[in-house]
Design a protein around this nucleic acid. Structure first.
Lengths: 164, 164
DNA sequence: TATTGTTATACTCTATAACTATA
DNA sequence: TATAGTTATAGAGTATAACAATA
């Protein structure tokens, strides 16, 4: 029962000895598994920053598009505006982003990074780039580009059919 | 300000007009976006079954490996055993799976599908296969196989470094 | 001691519905 | 009417810690 008894059964096709069966052929299944692995890796790499994947994505968009509204950010990340609210709230609680009411449309709140936010983002960038390299070490550069291309097509597809 | 003013800005590189910047080059970002799209699509396709992606994956493994324990299933799906507990609980509440204490190791509970579970799983299979086809319509067969191969390598990699 | 199942706890994300203020 | 933000609510998944029963 220990890992020394049946190394073959562990290292070969079925790492845990169970038959994944029908799931094996589903892109959706592998997409989920890869995402779970990434998510956990990410959490480990960025533990000291107390920030999640989604919070980082939001911060990056805010950094690149200062003055964007919550709805703008939410749309790009395919999030509900109520969900986005929660993300922004947590980022504000950590003093990473701040809001100002728009002068031209008083319904909107323009979101910007705080100085603290910019500082943290720069630090996180380094960690993520290192993490990304390690995570993708099993892919060649061509494969990596091809993977991004295919993934992009997959989620853009969903948008085209949903938007109009 | 309406969508008729700047069609180019909407239909070209930036569907929502925001600059994703640094995120564009990250496999992790696109993996997350594709996963979010898939997750939502999945939920829509299977709404009438009142079942989630993870619950389905667990059911499939249980179907293929009758008598497996909760820990077995959890390991394959990279879940904590407490998390798995929640999934199993919900599946039991819906009368889709059942448990029996193992005769050889009384700590273990062998999990099996109920008749109801088998029936539902068969119906869901059809829906998912149709969904999978639509979701992957933007990929050729070769691309699809290549994508699965790359994704598998990504999450297997995580396992190899974690297990020993 | 180690493993399995279990409960309790806490956090994040997700979505819906309803409300306010503004356009 | 429509949009932006907000709150309340509910549910799912994630993880940790602790416990009992069993090996």
């Amino acid at each position: 029962m220990t890992f020394t008894d049946q190394p073959d059964a562990l290292d070969s096709n079925d790492p845990e000895g169970l038959d994944p069966g029908w799931l094996t052929g589903l892109v959706g299944f592998h997409l989920r598994m890869a995402h779970v692995a990434l998510h956990r890796d990410f959490a480990l790499s960025t533990a000291r920053f107390d920030i999640t994947q989604k919070q980082l994505a939001a911060m990056e968009l805010i950094a690149r598009n200062p003055g964007a509204s919550q709805v703008d950010i939410a749309q790009v990340l395919s999030m509900d505006r109520a969900t986005m609210m929660g993300v922004i709230k947590r980022l504000m609680a950590k003093n990473l982003v701040e809001r100002k009411p728009s002068l031209t449309d008083r319904r909107r709140h323009e979101i910007r990074l705080t100085d603290q936010g910019r500082k943290v983002l720069a630090e996180v960038h380094e960690v993520i780039e290192k993490h990304e390299k390690e995570f993708c070490a099993v892919l060649s550069e061509d494969e990596c580009a091809s993977l991004i291309d295919m993934l992009t097509r997959l989620y853009r597809r969903g948008r085209q059919s949903a938007a109009p």
